[in-house]
Simulated assay, not measured.
Amino acid sequence: MSSEFKEFAMRGNVVDLAVGVVIGAAFGRVVTSLVDDILMPPLGILIGGVDFKDLKLILRQGVLDAEGKVTDVTLNYGNFIQSIIDFLIIALAIFMVVKLMNRLKRRKAASPDVPPAPTKEEVLLTEIRDALRGPGRV
């Protein structure tokens, strides 16, 4: 069972998937920081100093929670707006990466590969073949 697990874990596609998940998670944190720390503060100033995370609709005030604290029941639509902006930026970034990769693949496919020069052995064999055919033979 141990050797089977090792064989499974070392397959190329499993390792590639694991690397993709780790890089994707790190990329998500970077984009979230970009949105939270760089894009949203100026946007909040432009719309009158509003922080999207503070936007909420109070459904019921003063509810006693399990810990004995009085809290409001709220609909946090500001967090939802923040998540949509995060998603759109991540989707745009992934789109740009895929577009770049497709362009590079097309360039590689469009550029014909130059066949390698024949080796000395191939040249000699070609000369021998041509000499054995004799003049006028095809």
Score class of each variant (00 low, 15 high):
Met1Ile: 09
Ser3Cys: 06
Glu4Pro: 03
Phe5Cys: 04
Phe8Gly: 00
Met10Tyr: 07
Met10Phe: 12
Gly12Glu: 13
Gly12Gln: 08
Asn13Thr: 08
Asn13Lys: 10
Asn13Met: 11
Val14Trp: 07
Val15Asn: 01
Val15Tyr: 02
Asp16Ile: 05
Asp16Asn: 10
Asp16Glu: 14
Asp16Trp: 13
Val19Lys: 10
Val19Gln: 04
Val19Ser: 03
Val19Pro: 00
Gly20Cys: 07
Gly20Glu: 10
Val21Asp: 03
Val21Met: 14
Val22Leu: 14
Ile23Tyr: 07
Gly24Ala: 06
Gly28Val: 01
Val30Trp: 10
Val31Cys: 13
Val31Glu: 04
Thr32Met: 14
Val35Ala: 01
Asp36Val: 02
Ile38Lys: 14
Ile38Ser: 07
Pro41Trp: 14
Pro41Val: 10
Pro42Gly: 03
Gly44Arg: 08
Ile45Glu: 14
Leu46Tyr: 13
Leu46Gln: 07
Leu46Trp: 13
Gly48Pro: 05
Gly48His: 07
Gly48Phe: 06
Gly49Tyr: 08
Asp51Thr: 09
Asp51Ile: 15
Phe52Val: 04
Asp54Asn: 09
Asp54His: 11
Leu55Ser: 01
Lys56Leu: 11
Leu57Lys: 01
Leu57Pro: 00
Ile58His: 02
Leu59Cys: 01
Leu59Gln: 03
Leu59Pro: 00
Arg60Lys: 09
Arg60Cys: 04
Gln61Ala: 09
Gln61Cys: 00
Gly62His: 07
Leu64Phe: 10
Ala66Ser: 09
Glu67Arg: 07
Gly68Lys: 05
Gly68Cys: 03
Lys69Glu: 14
Val70Phe: 10
Val70Gln: 09
Val70Asn: 05
Thr71Ala: 08
Asp72Val: 10
Val73Tyr: 02
Val73Ser: 03
Thr74His: 03
Asn79Asp: 10
Asn79Ile: 11
Phe80Gly: 07
Gln82Leu: 06
Ser83Asn: 09
Ser83Arg: 13
Ser83Ile: 14
Ile84Arg: 05
Phe87Glu: 06
Phe87Gln: 04
Ile89Lys: 02
Phe95Tyr: 14
Met96Phe: 15
Val97Ser: 04
Val97Asp: 03
Val97Cys: 09
Val98Gly: 01
Val98Asn: 12
Lys99Val: 02
Lys99Arg: 11
Leu100Thr: 08
Met101Tyr: 13
Asn102Asp: 15
Leu104Ala: 15
Lys105Leu: 13
Lys105Ile: 09
Ala109Leu: 15
Ala109Val: 05
Ala110Leu: 14
Pro112Asp: 12
Asp113Trp: 13
Asp113Thr: 14
Val114Trp: 10
Val114Ile: 12
Pro115His: 02
Pro116Phe: 11
Pro116Lys: 11
Pro116Val: 09
Pro116Ser: 11
Thr119Val: 04
Thr119Met: 05
Lys120Phe: 15
Lys120Arg: 11
Lys120Ala: 12
Glu121His: 05
Glu122Ile: 06
Glu122Lys: 03
Glu122Trp: 01
Val123Tyr: 09
Leu125Gln: 12
Ile128Tyr: 04
Ile128Leu: 13
Ile128Gly: 00
Ala131Gly: 01
Arg133Thr: 02
Pro135Val: 07
Pro135Thr: 13
Gly136Ser: 08
Val138Gly: 05
Val138Trp: 07
